[in-house]
């Protein structure tokens, strides 16, 4: 079944008439995603790549009910658009934009939590259940069906790793980008739990980075509650403390969120941590044999 999204998931695109929105609508359609509508206030009635455009999410939901929505809205306006989707009954929200103010993100998460809405991102590439449904901006080529679930805090590094896995004959069930911001909707634990229950997933690759404590929390969960093997890669071994390494969340603050702390926690939980990304296929294959 894969997790969160599958071939029947109906998807809306907020900001569909923009440059990014229209480009990725075409890419998602090419991947096979069922995009049933787009939203762009004031542009209702138009079509983008054959997809009908609506003025509001409520209007779209009346005509073309959907479970998921993906946002291509400039950061200063993302909060309003996200709240609109939650209010209109969307179940899964993918927030692509970077630079959404931190307090806006906290408000979105609180509102989503009250409505049991799953939020992916912000500052994410989205998610893809290979061969079924892509709700995101990743390149279409590397995501071929297979037994490996991947959950990552970063985008291009994740493509690199999925590409390496694919080249070694390892396809993916679902690949999810948690997002590079400090406050994001999903944690490693949320996703690991779903992978643990998913029949199509046999092993999980966790791609973490410095900053925060999500990897340490994941390690505790893995030790206590995962029967499926997990292998990991952590970026940022060479990062100096106090510097934000591109992602808002990738910063060692007050001695917390270090590379060493994450690797130690994962290894204690029995998770092999690759030194270099290209070692991951080997580790996955070894884990699958066990």
């Amino acid at each position: 079944m894969a997790i969160y999204v599958h071939r029947h998931t109906r998807v809306l695109v907020q900001g569909i008439t923009g440059r990014q929105g229209s480009f990725h609508t075409a890419q998602m359609l090419a991947y096979g995603t069922r995009i049933v509508g787009g939203i762009s206030p004031g542009k209702g009635g138009q079509k983008v790549e054959g997809v009908p455009v609506f003025n509001t999410v409520f209007e779209a939901m009346e005509v073309q009910p959907a479970e998921a929505s993906i946002l291509f809205i400039p950061a200063p306006f993302a909060r309003d658009a996200a709240m609109e989707s939650i209010a209109a009954g969307i179940r899964l929200l993918v927030l692509i934009p970077e630079h959404i103010p931190l307090h806006d993100a906290m408000e979105i998460m609180a509102y989503a939590g009250r409505h049991n809405v799953v939020v992916v991102g912000p500052n994410t590439f989205g998610l893809v259940s290979s061969g079924q449904c892509k709700v995101g901006i990743m390149p279409n080529d590397y995501f071929v069906p297979g037994p490996v679930g991947v959950v990552s805090r970063s985008g291009t590094l994740c493509y690199e790793i999925v590409g390496t896995l694919a080249a070694a004959g390892l396809g993916t069930s679902t690949v999810i980008g948690l997002g590079g911001d400090r406050v994001v909707g999903l944690s490693f634990i949320d996703v690991l739990q779903r992978f643990e229950e998913d029949e199509e997933t046999a092993a999980v690759v966790l791609v973490g980075e410095i900053g925060g404590s999500a990897e340490e929390e994941a390690a505790r969960f893995i030790a206590a509650s995962m029967s499926k093997p997990v292998v990991a890669y952590i970026a940022g071994r060479s990062a100096p403390p106090g510097k934000r390494m591109g992602h808002a969340g990738a910063i060692i603050e007050r001695g917390r969120g270090t590379f060493e702390s994450k690797v130690e926690a994962l290894e204690m939980a029995g998770v092999p941590v690759a030194n270099l990304p290209q070692e991951l296929p080997q580790l996955v294959k070894a884990a699958l044999k066990r």
Binding site: S152, R153, S154, G155, T156, L157, C158, E160, G180, V207, E209, I210, Y233, A235, G236, S238, A239, M245, G246, H247, A250, P277
Partner: peptide, 9 residues
């Protein structure tokens, strides 16, 4: 590089 994670890596 293109992307925060891959640049760190």
């Amino acid at each position: 590089a293109n992307g925060a994670g891959i640049t760190m890596a």
